[in-house]
Structure formats: C-alpha cells, structure tokens
Design a protein around this nucleic acid. Sequence first.
DNA 1: GCCGTTTTCGGCCCGACTGTTTTCAGTCG
Length: 556
Amino acid sequence: MSNSEIADIIELTGKLLDLHDKDEMRSKTYLSSVFTLERLETDLSTMQSSEISAIRGFGKLMTKNIEEILQTGTLQELTELVALTPQGIFDIFKVKGLGVKKIKVLWNELGLDNINDLKIACENGKIALQKGFGQKTQDSILESLAFLQAQQGKLRMDKALVLSQEILAVLSSIYEGVEEVGQVIRATQTVDLLQFIVPKDGFGSLKLPEPFEIDVKESSPSMWRGTFNKNQIKIEVEKVASKDLVWKRMLRNSADEHLKLKNEKGEHLLQFVQNSKLSSESEIYEAFGSFYIIPEMREGFTELDWIKSNKNEQIVTWDSLKGTLHNHSTYSDGKNTLKQMADYAKEIGLTYFGIADHSQTATYASGLKPETVLKQHEEISLLNAQYSDFKIIKGIESDILPNGDLDYENDVLASFDYVVASVHSVLNMDIDRATQRLIKAIENPYTSILGHLSGRLLLSREGYPLHYQKIIDACAANNVVMELNASPYRLDIDWRYIEACLNKGVMISINPDAHTMHGLLDMHYGVKVARKAGLSSEMTLNCKSYAEVMKVFNKK
DNA sequence: GCCGTTTTCGGCCCGACTGTTTTCAGTCG
C-alpha cells in the first residue's frame, strides 16, 4: 500500500470526524498528518514503528493507525464513521467549493444527504437563503454538479488502461485470442467504453463469470454488454466469427466520425469496411482511396488530408525519445532526489534529464528560493562530472504570475539553461486577460517552453479559455516550444491544437512533469496522444540529442 | 492529538481566493 493510499484513508477519517462533530483537534491532527504524508520520501510500508513515531506530527495514535492500515488495508475507526454516514454524502464531497463545514450545514440544517436533493434545493433557491451561503455559492454548486454528471462513467486514460488489462486477463483465461479494441487502442484521453473482441465461430452467446455483470436488455447473442467489478464504466465484449475479424476490428478501432469520412467519389469509409472481403486494413484503405491510417488517428479530424502529405513512419514513438525536460525532485515537491531521478532516466535509455522544479512563488510546492537554485546548480555540476554520455540540464518551472511576469529576477533566470513557464494560480481569468498574460510570458526572453497550456485537469477541472491561434503565433515569433504535458491528469496542450503549432513551425516537447522516478514513464501517455495529432519525432524537442536541444535553448 | 517548551498547557502549514460579510470563515492547492 502506497503512502498516498494511506493518506487518503486518514484524510477521509479526519473529514468524517469533523462531519460528525467528533473530537475537532483529533481531526486536525489527522488532516495535518496527510500534509506530512504527501511529502514523505520513504514508503511507510518499509518503516519500523519506531521510525514512524519519530516523524514530526506522528505520535502514539497516528503510528498505531498507520500500522493498522498497513495490516488490514483500512481503519476500524473509519469503518465505524462510514456506517454513520449516508452514501450520498460521499458524492457531495466531490462537489467543488463544498468542504466539510458547508456539507455539515447542508446535511444538518437542510437534511441534504445526496446529489439529487442538493440539485433540487439549488434549483429552488433554497441554498442561497441558508446562512453562510449565497447566490454565487448556489450557482457554483449547480455548475459543479453539471460537470460531475458529465464525467460519470468516464475514466482517465491511465486508469482505463489498467482496468482494460485486468479485464483482458480475465477474458483471456476463458477464451483464446481475445483482443482489446476501441478507445483504449485509439488512445482517447478519457474513456467511457471498454471494448473487447472474442474470436469464436458457431452458435451460443458468451458467458462471463463474476465479477462481470450483464445488462440483459442491452445485450444480444453476439454482443455482451454490462459492467465489471462494480466499475461505472461500460464494457462491451463482442463475439466475432473468424472470417469477420479484420473488418470488425477496424470498425471498433475507428471513431464514428472517421467512418463517416468520404473519398473523392463521395463514398463513406464505412461502406468499404462493412462490405469488404478484403483481408487487411491496408487493403480497405486502398480500396477507399487512401493510405493506411493508424488507429490513434482515426477520429474524423484531419487525418485524410494529413496522410496525403505525411508518412506514418515519421510519427513520434516512445523509442524515438532521447531525453526528458520537465521534472521535479525533492528540491521542490518531487518524491525522489535529483540523482535518483536522473539515474532512472538513464536506466530507461534516455541521454539527458532536465530538472524543472517549482519556482519561489509556489510555496505550496516548496518552490526554490534563489539561494536553493544556486545549491541545486552546484549539485548538478558535481553529478554531471560523474556521468559519461549523460547530462542533467539546469531548468526551472517558473510560475507565470498574474501579470505575466516570470517568478525570478533576470540574473536568476539567466542562470538556467532553460525555463518552462507555467500558470499555477489565478486560473479564472477571462479569455482576453488569460491570453494576454500568456503572451507576455512567451515574449519574456528567458522563456523556453510554455508549460501545460490551458491548466485543465481531465475529468476534474476545465482549463481557462484562450485565443489559441494568438498564443501559437506568439510562440512561433519568440522561439518558444509548446509543452505537451504527458501527465494523464493533464495531456495539455490538447492534441487537437498540435497541428496548428506544427503549421507555424512551433516544436512540441513531450514532458512527463514527473514527481517520482516512475513518473517519467508518463511520457508513454504523451506519445500516445501526440500520435493522434501526427506529431513527428522531427518536431518533438525531446527526440533531439542533448547538443541539438541546447542549440534550441540558446536561440533564445 | 501532537509538539515543545515561554517545560504539562497553548496553539497548531500557509497564502490566496471567494463569497459573504462588514472583518472573516471556508476552501483549495
């Protein structure tokens, strides 16, 4: 069990203590220990109890609690509190802007203990009348509820891939030749349907054991529909005769919008897929009048035009990555040391590691003060002296302040090899102010890469609005590289804007924003969505060698 | 509940933001 899983259990226990008016100071301790846990570098599961109780803020009880969680996977105290709490309250916890204090009022004063009743109370204007609440709070609750509803039954790419693999393993233990198809193969950034193909000739429908749960009304003899292990996400398992495998696979691995694309004669791709006696996907595309299009690109976006003037072989792959440029260490809010991070980058075959810890304004993430920057640079020089054919590059993730300035004086900025400029606070600007703020940061002579462009968090926070073309034009004019933040939480810049970058000659850097060693592997997700946009390794900054990357930075 | 002494009781991470207040409480990252 990881530290963050333990922290989640303790956090929920603390919140429920508050909700049920139990010992207020005890819950404070629980919640502050969560803060400590999140920045703890050692796995609790590897620690002796004497070591745990030596941690600041961890006394007798917290040590006992952590040991209980490690042994049983939960806390008896939490189980008892959960039993006292209506199920719907846990949904209300997900509403933005509502913390324990407000939820307590809603529950105790208005008897609201589920999302539905909360929504009705908002629509009737009852929330705004409650003391401590107002019109704006009521509006923002409604807005958050609508957002939550739209996200139901959806998973981020990383979660979907794990679940899909788990299901594939179970299916493969029953049937031979089972394949994943659909959104997972197309690498959509969020997933609301997991699809599988089971090759099987003859009569008889598929029989799936628990924890599969069939939706009888939606299923047919050849198509099993339902859910898996209480997950909300929909599952489809299709029985396919061996003679139909090629076209069925292609059908499932293409978005509807892709299948609706027309050739020069006005014929839909779908006709060729369905009618085909052709024995490969390449032949289907050929009959349609196009070159082969990779599954990631089959979105009905610009792929038909793209393939006319590009080659699939030029598209970025994991193996073409040579380095990594946006990463954190224990100097700021990372979990691993600079050396651990760099060594791991070397281990997975990369040839350089760019450190870009948080800048001084990001106090919540222990952003680096100028004197700490100096210290880090000394360590980098020492480490670089020890490596052969591997380099650590001195970077920083500088906050873009609300007025568009970067977060250090020029002499400090000048001491880095490169600067990733990113917005972390005041995320609520209107489109003109937000755009102006970013353009000012892009025009700063020290900015090398524009970090997570929109500030979005997939399935949890919309990005701020931007005039995208103006931003891209400014990057082109100022030799600024666009980040494709590869964290599955972000995948920001959205892949749909990558083509516009390429049209202006703006390079893309696939950056993991890693806060742990294994976080470097998040570049896999970045590569997947970059392939949707047809990004070439030629235009990917971290597919370049160390010397070439430094040349790009020095152009500034 | 936990810490750290101003050493057995007082005060808790912290700064920004928002909305509801009329000087501040609640939420967030």
